[in-house]
Amino acid sequence: MKVLVSVKRVVDFNVKVRVKADGSGVETANVKMSMNPFDEIALEEAVRLKEAGVATEIVAVSCGVQACQETLRTALAIGADRAILVESGEELQPLAVAKLLKAICQKEAPQLVILGKQAIDDDSNQTGQMLAALLGWSQATFASKVAMEKEKATVTREVDGGLETISIKLPAIVTTDLRLNEPRYVTLPNIMKAKKKPLETLKPETLGVDVCPRLITLKVVEPPKRKAGVKVADARALVEKLRNEAKVI
């Protein structure tokens, strides 16, 4: 069974994000970039499926600038067999990425596509769902457990009220939640082996996909600074404020 995993290059989770001076977005120049942590979980799940003899090939896909090659190299070092970069300098929004992934899926015909439930930069949480809709495939989002069977998969999902277990038909889209697994560390020997694995570069045009942004960002601003609090004289005054001003009790 072929498994496709999408990996996004994002600002590292340790970096203190700064807004660009002109308010057009977030500063990414000279900032440490890494693989989206949810995508690491997605890749780890695929590698475990391969180690368990369920998956036969893992293809990692990334959409974005040329530097996404680094993210794909990491994916190859973690255990993907080959990688595809869809190179574009455009701002790629979830719909555009979903369309690109759809084109790749039609080309590669995977039985399972695993994506992070969201990327930690824009927190959109849309690409997996859009991809499932575009392909007309079944989807299981926010997975915390995946069990593969022949023609179907049983997926435990993290939902607001607790856990929900569903059965989906293959081919299918799965998006990962935080507790699905704990990703492994890249080892140096595997980094070296990854250098020999194939990395193919495609363009959106060759896939016949229009990636023009459909949404326009008007302005990006820092969150407002927290204002100083007030001191209350006694418990009575506190209860009074909580009841009448904050209206929380």
Binding site: E70, R73, T74, A77, Y185, V186, T187, L188, I191
Partner: peptide, 14 residues
Amino acid sequence: AEVRAALRKFTTEK
């Protein structure tokens, strides 16, 4: 650079 990134993550977290 890639080797350093892997080493840094492993050293810091593990």
